[in-house]
């Protein structure tokens, strides 16, 4: 399978677009007609061919453009990528995980040759050919986590495990749903989730943490999370909120279908071998409402979910102000027919 990479942007003129195949494989996050917080963690098993779950680290038509956008963000604000000193070993673990997975899953795009600690990595889409010494950071142009996450779609956090908790001690965060790595780095699981309304009192985080502390090597898990974004913008950081915030108020009933995006995070969690840390890639997928509704099941369901969502959650997810317009648009695609179980389109 050869991927045709899009030439597109995630800022300014926003030329981002999904091909019809990309829409079909979009990880629609709702398996019911209503949404409530839940731990919803499942094994990160290989999914069906063509789906975003087929490979351990999905590479799609947006790969090159996303990496270009990350480069722009990092040039503007290098603090989006940080690693506390004790996390370098975890960075190497993660580099190894990504390189071995990608070389195995996409042999036509990536290759890794290892001779002891002498490694040779080729990334054809980005035109990279790198020889380096494993565990010797001076042989890479930057630290191991930064090196590999400049070549891997999605945000990535590395979590240190100690004192019965997980600590956000390293990360590459350039397409976040409104949280700041520079602010949150060094926090434990409960602290970095502190701004999430209600979930703490529901015990969701205690259960999730207990599960993750016992995460095993070779048995990664995943969950889907979601939010809403106006325009296909990756950098919805709090750092730049005052720059992208005004765009949120530019929706009109005429443009809402094209400019309002459902933003889905495919979160995976991996136990790393040498460091015992947990890698936490947060892969972002964007899909315009007008593309979502081309799948009738999704159009119906998204309408019901967003219409019935508690106001507090709509506020937390930052689309409260646009909700009436969004729901009104989607209502035209909901004939009230029942929807089938699961997240995938009807055949």
């Amino acid at each position: 399978m050869t991927i045709r990479f899009n030439d597109e942007t995630f800022r300014d003129d926003y030329t981002f677009h999904n091909s019809p195949e990309a829409v079909r494989r979009f990880p629609f996050p709702f398996d019911h007609d209503s949404y409530m917080y839940s731990v919803n963690i499942e094994p990160h098993r290989r999914g069906q061919a063509g789906s975003v779950f087929q490979h351990r680290f999905d590479v799609d038509e947006h790969y090159i453009a996303e990496m270009r956008d990350r480069e722009i963000t990092l040039k503007d604000d290098p603090l989006r990528c940080q690693s506390l000193p004790h996390m370098e070993l975890a960075g190497w673990d993660f580099l190894e995980l990504v390189m071995t997975c990608k070389a195995e899953d996409y042999p036509d795009l990536f290759s890794l040759t290892r001779d002891g600690d002498r490694w040779h990595w080729i990334n054809r889409p980005l035109g990279i050919d790198q020889r380096f010494t494993f565990l010797d950071a001076t042989t890479l142009p930057c630290g191991p986590m930064e090196y590999i996450t400049r070549q891997t779609q999605g945000d990535h956090a590395l979590l240190d495990q100690r004192e019965g908790n997980l600590w956000m001690d390293a990360g590459m965060i350039t397409s976040q749903a409104d949280w700041s790595l520079d602010f949150d780095i060094g926090m434990n699981f409960f602290e970095w989730h502190a701004p999430v309304p209600k979930a703490a009192e529901m015990g969701v985080f205690q259960r999730a943490l207990k599960f993750l502390l016992n995460l095993q090597q070779g048995a990664p898990v995943r969950r889907l999370n979601w939010t809403m974004t106006v325009n296909p913008r990756l950098d919805t950081s709090p750092e730049n909120y005052h720059k992208w915030g005004p765009e949120k108020r530019t929706l009109t009933p005429e443009t809402v279908g094209a400019k309002q995006y459902l933003r889905v995070e495919l979160q995976t969690l991996w136990r790393l071998p040498r460091s015992n840390a947990v890698a936490f890639p947060i892969r972002c997928y964007l899909c315009a409402l007008e593309d979502i509704v081309t799948v009738p099941k999704w159009g119906r369901r998204l309408h019901r979910v967003l219409r019935d969502l508690p106001e507090e959650l709509a506020t937390y997810k930052g689309f409260s102000v646009n909700r009436p317009m969004i729901v009104d648009y989607l209502s035209k695609f909901d004939d009230g027919a029942p929807t089938s179980p699961g997240i995938f389109p009807d055949p």
């Binding site: 701004p195 709090p238 909120y241 108020r249």
Partner: peptide, 27 residues
């Protein structure tokens, strides 16, 4: 000089609470 609202979210590393632009969406 931005006008910031005061969050309870706190960073031990920075020894500071977080301030976020209060009129970002509607200057």
């Amino acid at each position: 000089g931005l006008t910031l609202f005061v969050r309870d979210h706190y960073s031990r590393r920075l020894a500071a609470f977080q301030g976020v632009c209060v009129d970002a969406e509607a200057p």
